[in-house]
Every structure is written in C-alpha cells, then in structure tokens.
C-alpha cells in the first residue's frame, strides 16, 4: 500500500502568525496553543472539485454581473488577471477562484457595512471563475476604493480585492487579499503588516500590466497566485510508531 504524494508543509514563518496585536481583532480569535502538525492522509490530500456547470460564464464580469441591462458599474475599469500556480511553478488548471470587493467608493454591498460612501446600484461586488488549462483566470471589475475601518480611529484599508482559491486538495485551501501597486496605504495597514517579510507583501501586490490593458477601455493588473506544491514521488508507507 502506498501513501499518495504529500504537499509541502506550509511555511508558517512566511504566513502571518495567529496573534498579531496591531490587528486588534486577532487578539481574542487567535488560538493560544500551537497547531498540531499532521502528516497528511487522504483527508488532507483530497479536496473538492468544481465544474463549468457550477458557475455561469458571466460570473467573472463584475462590471455587468449585477448591473441593469445596458448599464455597468461605476469606477476605474480594470482587468484583474493572472495564473494559479503551485510551488513547483506548475499551473493549477480547472480550480475555482472567487473574489469579493468594495465598490469604487470603498463601500461593500453587505448588510453590516454602514460606510457613508454610496452603494452602486450596478455593482454587486463578487465574481468567480474556473482557471483554464494553463491555470489562467481573468476578472473584469472596477478598482475598489480605500475604506476606513475600526482598528485605530484613523485606520484605512488600502484598495484590495479578497481572493478565495481552491487547489486540488483541501490542504491547499487559501483565502488572501490582492493589493495594487503604488498604493501608499499598503505600508500603513495593520492587516498587511501581519506579514513579517516584505517579500510576502510584495507577493500580494498586483503589478500594473500595461501589456494586458484594453486601449480606451480597461487598465490591467496582474496577480499570480501560488498554492502549495506537491512532492514528485509517492512514498512507501512506513508503519508509524506507537
């Protein structure tokens, strides 16, 4: 009997720790015991898959997926695109990518968001797509606005898009946020600063991608996503101690 190939362990010093007091909400929600490290079994190596009939083709067009026919969302029109890769730099095809974001004024369409910026009647704020054969995805949307939030009295989130990504195993499940090159609020954000390595912040910052813009229509940002990679070989099972 063989154990399926495992995924590389997560680099917990690259990710944020659970307890990050500058981001105040983490203080009461961070586990105080260390995580128990688990060698992977079928429960971790398998994961859900999604098909084309789970979603609709227009779900990745946030300019129009909630708009009245003939209208579109207000704001700076952007193409947000990239590839989902693994740590071995191989594309991850046919996986579900979901995003959500504030509108161009920094307001979320959510019953709990009471920010004074107005709701855009033509903008829902969510989209989803499956990566193609090469791991590529694309969204059409507006650049979200910065918004204030209650951490310190004068805390502002940089413009960001929330990303939820599936791989092929439940252990690759990831939620993250995409920021935009050049935003001076990135360096001031306590949520961004939960990451200790500046290179980790860079990895969350989408690059202006002039080659992918549509002239006279939309500007483009490139955001590649890397999921955990997998060992190349299957390992013979060893009896475990105990």
């Amino acid at each position: 009997m063989k154990t399926p190939a495992e995924y590389y362990q997560r680099d917990r010093q690259w990710h944020a720790p659970a307890l990050t007091p500058e981001y105040k909400t983490s203080v009461s929600r961070a586990p105080s015991f260390p995580l128990l490290s688990l060698e992977q079994s079928a429960s971790e190596i398998t994961g859900p898959s999604f098909r084309n009939d789970d979603i609709n083709p227009g779900d990745n067009d946030l300019l129009h997926n909630y708009a009245t026919a003939g209208e579109s969302a207000i704001g700076e029109r952007i193409i947000l695109h990239g590839r989902v890769l693994d740590e071995n730099a191989r594309p991850v095809p046919h996986v579900l990518v979901e995003i959500w974001q504030a509108n161009a004024g920094g307001r979320y369409r959510h019953r709990k968001d009471g920010y004074l910026a107005p709701i855009d009647a033509n903008f829902g704020g969510c989209g989803r797509t499956l990566t193609d054969d090469q791991g590529y995805y694309v969204f059409h949307t507006v650049k979200p606005g910065a918004y204030p939030w209650r951490n310190w009295v004068n805390s502002w989130r940089p413009a960001h898009v929330h990303f939820s990504v599936f791989g092929t195993s439940f252990s690759q499940r990831l939620i993250t946020q995409c920021y935009f090159e050049g935003d001076p609020l990135i360096a001031r954000c306590p949520i961004v600063q939960t990451l200790k390595d500046p290179a980790a912040v860079d990895q969350l910052t989408a690059a202006l991608d002039m080659n992918a813009t549509i002239p006279l229509d939309s500007i483009a940002y490139r955001f590649d996503i890397v999921l955990r990679g997998r060992r190349a070989t299957y390992f013979e099972n060893r009896p475990e101690g105990g």
């Binding site: 740590e87 730099a89 980790a200 990895q203 969350l204």
Partner: peptide, 29 residues
Amino acid sequence: DYLKETPSQTAGPYVHIGLAPGAAGFDIY
C-alpha cells in the same frame, strides 16, 4: 526555483459577499 505560497490574509467581515452572497443580503448567482 520553487515559488513561495501566496500568503494568507484574513477573510474579513464581508466574506459572505464573495462566498455566500445571499446571506450578505443580495441575490446574484
């Protein structure tokens, strides 16, 4: 030449918009 895994960030308070929009208060999908 391995890549680094994309760092995680909090889902935040409005995760429902993306993953359960009906609960956020609107019907889209």
